[in-house]
Design a protein around this nucleic acid. Structure first.
Lengths: 191, 191
DNA sequence: TTAATTTATTACCATAGGTTCATATTTGCT
DNA sequence: AGCAAATATGAACCTATGGTAATAAATTAA
């Protein structure tokens, strides 16, 4: 909880009143490695804030292939935005890659929270702006780059992640197979 | 201008004061087919609202290949989010696919507008929520679908666009070549 | 209406990356 | 430490899609 307060305090001043309200609506949860927090086909509308550890949101196709949407570490938000913000049924799962600690806020509470403390509209709007730019950038990469280029960019942009995340999941984030990533990594060592 | 007011009035009540302010900051512009509104390497931070016609945001690689980020018709917003919301230099261009009419608002004015009329924070936040869900969905498609599947989904989701947009630009949106799209379309007719 | 230009299709070959299957290597557990 | 499970690499082959180039069709301009 303290961590989320610190996160917010970096952005806006927090009154005792707000702090109380936050305490009311935030649920703390510890996750073991591999634990799933949000299963596909659940329709829970939840915002997840990572306190420690690393989480991943992903989509599993019928034939069992996984596609990673997002990784998140300390101070990142991770959620299934399709469930949160559309009426479509969820197809996304979120799991913990390490032992992690997260804070969970139900979306209905978030909505109420906005109404009571309008300054959080601003925080969230700015948060969304950055996220939209990041998503747009990711789409550009998926459209324009080769597998090797996507990997290089990933390494550059997500240095902190590289050590924590298994390669086969990085591959699934880049939209390639683990075997292909292996080939690419081999090439990189040569050059 | 009326069109933007109508758009907003669907979401929130508009006072004469707000209407005046909007009139001040909104620039109207007519575009002919093929006209570029935002060139890559400009760093203009602008929000574009489409009144009529159709626009496209895209990225051009050094070897001249184009990758389409977004199409927008009546009542859609289109912008270069990387320029708007990060410090990175722009690599995205926006052009008109038809004769179009757009409204342009400079981002500095938008920021001021938020401050004066906080209810627009809410509108924008909700607008962003939908956009994020849509972007996440697009990433899923790019990761998980074959070229043929991506095309089918496009046709389904963007029926209105299909008639306006040339196939080679649809291809560039799907991340495939026009030739490849041609093959796919031929297959579809057979089945 | 005709010529010029842009867009779409077709065909044929090339290749990045997928598939399959086997083998290392690493990690976690007791 | 030693075994099992998870992850990574490797090699051989395959396929979806890209590249190139030529032609056809459609759109635009004159």
């Amino acid at each position: 909880m303290k961590e989320l307060l610190d996160y917010f305090k970096n952005l806006v001043s927090i009154s005792p009143e707000i702090e109380n309200k936050l305490n009311e609506i935030v649920k703390e949860r510890n996750l073991v490695k591999g634990e799933q927090i949000l299963a596909d086909n659940s329709s829970k509308k939840e915002h997840i804030f990572v306190v420690s550890g690393c989480l991943r949101s992903f989509y599993k196709t019928e034939d069992g292939k996984e596609h990673t949407l997002q990784f998140a570490i300390k101070n990142w938000w991770i959620s299934d935005y399709i469930t949160l913000y559309t009426d479509k049924k969820s197809i996304v799962s979120i799991e913990s890659l390490t032992h992690s600690k997260v804070l969970i806020i139900d979306n209905s509470n978030v909505e109420k929270f906005y109404q009571e403390f309008s300054q959080f509209e601003i925080i969230q709007r700015k948060n969304f702006e950055k996220r939209i730019a990041a998503l747009q950038k990711r789409i550009l990469s998926l459209l324009a780059l080769t597998a090797a280029e996507k990997y290089s960019q990933f390494i550059e942009d997500y240095t902190e992640f590289e050590k924590i995340i298994p390669n086969y999941q990085i591959a699934s984030y880049l939209g390639i197979t683990p075997q292909s990533l292996s080939r690419i990594r081999k090439e990189r060592i040569k050059n």
